[in-house]
Design a protein around this nucleic acid. Structure first.
Lengths: 146, 146
DNA sequence: ATATTACTTAAAGTGTACTTTAAGTCAATA
DNA sequence: TATTGACTTAAAGTACACTTTAAGTAATAT
């Protein structure tokens, strides 16, 4: 069996930024915050590999669930400390999830009211009701409150 | 039929703040931003009525869908200008809704990845897999990507 | 009556997450 | 070879949405 030399694609910071949908300054900022470890060429320039794309994309998913930079930093610190910190990481992610679900419910309620208002305006514009119904009364009709 | 004198409950800014879940400084800030019109007692102090509670809660619903203070301000300006601006308000709310729905989909995907990671950690912790499976491989098993 | 609390304004400060600038080095293209 | 473009760092600046401070007046509670 021949020995395969794996040739990893190397990305400059600009190309990597495009690949993950961020800007080069943001990547440098994340690096100073300890979220990303960067590799350096002999001339001092940063480079990134395929695996780094997965890592950054995963970080962005966590970020998208509401994790702050400092929470991500804590997560990264625990991750670097090895498998002993899996319970801590799990607790953190579960807390993030619980917070997320609360927000998620709230935001769905906000959407319901927004939808109701849009529908109310459309009915009003169409002149469906001659005697105009208040938005409150309109909400009441659907049992939508607060 | 006797003439009914409607006695509107009057709230001080502190009580009103509690009623809507904000702080007094935030209410003053919203007032300077033109989101809230305040009534004043003879002594210069602000007071609020029941109807103001509905208005602030409605604003907070719109805010919760992602509208910025300046978008809310624009909405309020149009509202004050009367029914002629209903098309503008409708356009704004529809744009807000469209943006919201994009975000909503994204955020659900973020949740999926978060959930997958939590499950992956739990399986890892339980020692279900002897030969540890990478998170990428785990995601692949469920068809969860990016 | 006095002390505490709530209100008033204007202005300055805070936190988060970047973004931009400045000054310089180095690599790639015409 | 010249010049354009991409990179480097450190530090300052920005946007948003409040929050806090300061200095003062007025209402409420003991």
């Amino acid at each position: 069996m021949p020995t395969e030399t794996k040739i990893e694609t190397q990305y400059s910071i600009g190309d990597f930024a495009k690949a993950v949908g961020l800007t080069a300054p943001t990547l440098r900022y994340y690096e100073t915050e300890g979220l990303i470890e960067t590799h350096r060429l002999a001339n001092g320039r940063r480079y990134y590999e395929e695996a780094d794309i997965n890592w950054v994309k995963f970080l962005l998913h966590l970020k998208g669930t509401g994790m702050s930079i400092s929470e991500l930093k804590q997560y990264v610190i625990w991750r670097a400390a090895g498998d002993d910190t899996i319970p801590e990481r799990l607790d953190l992610l579960k807390k993030v999830k619980a917070d997320f679900l609360v927000q998620f419910d709230e935001v769905q309620h906000h959407l319901q009211i927004l939808n109701d208002k849009i529908n109310w305006y459309e009915e009003k514009e169409a002149g469906v009701t001659k005697d105009p119904e208040s938005f409150r009364a309109y909400l009441d009709r659907f049992g939508h409150h607060e």
